[in-house]
Design a protein around this nucleic acid. Structure first.
Lengths: 255, 255
DNA sequence: GAGTGGTCTAGACCACATG
DNA sequence: ATGTGGTCTAGACCACTCG
């Protein structure tokens, strides 16, 4: 409720075009391999100049849904699910899209002094005060992941007096005016240790997907450093690339 | 040699602007938190209209390097490494960027009939002929990953008579006119099985990053289905998102 | 050669952030 | 109030694909 998120905001023309096309792709009106209408045709259809039409195509291309190129018509590639920035930033937002039955049990909320690693990631002094939240995330009441969120003190302070068992931390921070602008995730495979096994209810030595998240503000200040340990059978990450669009994903050795 | 890849191709204006700005970011002339010149200033600097300038900004935004927004100047977020479509599609291309000392030992190359899973992924009939390459990838002569590439027969046939020990498969296919246009990767954590352990020289039950790749043509036809099993300590995947740009990455349950 | 998307120009108005 | 980026128009030429 009471979320005055955004004003009704008359939809932009390019959004209208994007949404129409995306829906046609998702509902099968346009199947993989099919050609889209030409830009000229879309201009007529939507009584628009080429700008908005091209912006719409650029969006669909970046989502990996279509392929475009000189001298030929654009073609549908897949009907992959769409995805929002929020659902990658906030595990709760992701879960609400995909799996309605997610819940969490808070293990620990409080102020603590930053260890070397966390301080480095958050770009604060070693030993300075930070806010840390440790929660167990459950799917259908089955443990799914251990989550440890770390915030600089001024960012996370409001969370010290917040019901972390029943609400989304990111949504609350967003409501308080904390503007998350970028999120950088890294992922690797690991084995569950004793603590993982106990909390997640799995045998020691099970596969674990280890995820780290660094989120920053518009100004590039680090607002959050989070670590997740997710049961290996539980989660798959997908990355979809189309030639010619920048791909904000890459592999590296070690962390 | 005879690679007439692309004509010298006078660089486009927007590429010039993109490259200049990206280099400024990478070499530290512009640091995270700094403001970029305004669009108007860039228009003057490059004697250009707004179109190319905005296209350059859109690229940098999609790469996760900058953040833009109404009413304020754009700011630098990070100086993350850049990355190409090729380096995500082809492990060899990735490795050449990051680690010069990669090599491979071919275990098996040949025609085989597709099992149910592979046939489904490649979108061919179960039992129809496909080309499969199984290689061990080594980094500094240490095993890094087991790679199994599967191609429809007409796509992969030239590889049957190809030196898969010393050359990049994707580069060769590209040279032969096979146009890879999109790549969809999915990743999960697993434990090494007996074969993994033997080939990779690790204890059974070690963490493994299991990667699947589906690559398609401009028309959406599936050209390749690849499976990798990478040693867990070897590889980290990064995904960088900025609010407002589509993020071609998402999580799901299971595969 | 006709059609298509890629690039670019030179304007315009609007929404938003900041002083 | 001013400056900024976001959206849009109405043209233009080019590079490419395909019949």
């Amino acid at each position: 409720m009471g979320s005055s998120k955004k004003s009704p905001k008359s939809t932009q023309r390019y959004e209208l075009i994007t949404n129409h096309l995306r829906q046609s792709i998702e509902d099968g009106t346009l199947s993989p391999g099919d050609e889209l209408p030409s830009e000229a045709e879309l201009c007529e259809q939507y009584d628009s100049s080429r700008g908005p039409v091209r912006q719409a195509m650029a969006l669909l291309r970046a989502e990996g849904l279509i392929s475009t190129g000189r001298g030929r018509r654009s073609t549908v590639l897949t009907s992959a699910p769409s995805n929002s920035f929020e659902s990658l930033l906030s595990m709760t937002a992701w879960a609400e899209d995909m799996e309605p039955d997610i819940s969490q049990r808070t293990l620990w909320v409080g102020r603590t002094s930053a260890d070397a690693h966390t301080a480095c990631q958050l770009n604060v002094e070693v030993g300075s005060q930070i806010v840390t939240i440790k929660r167990l995330r459950l799917l259908n009441d089955e443990p799914l992941a251990i989550e440890r969120l770390n915030f600089p003190l001024d960012v996370g302070r409001p969370l010290l007096d917040f019901d972390t068992d029943n609400c989304s931390v990111h949504r609350e921070l967003s409501r308080l005016g904390v503007g998350f602008e970028s999120a950088n995730r890294s992922m690797s495979a690991a084995l569950s240790n004793g603590e993982d096994s106990e909390l997640l209810g799995i045998p020691e030595g099970s596969p674990i997907m280890q995820v780290e998240l660094l989120a920053a503000s518009k100004q590039g200040r680090t607002l959050e450093y989070a670590e997740y340990r997710v049961i290996g059978e539980g989660l798959v990450l997908h990355v979809n690339n189309v030639r010619g669009t920048p791909t904000p994903a890459w592999f590296s050795r070690e962390s």
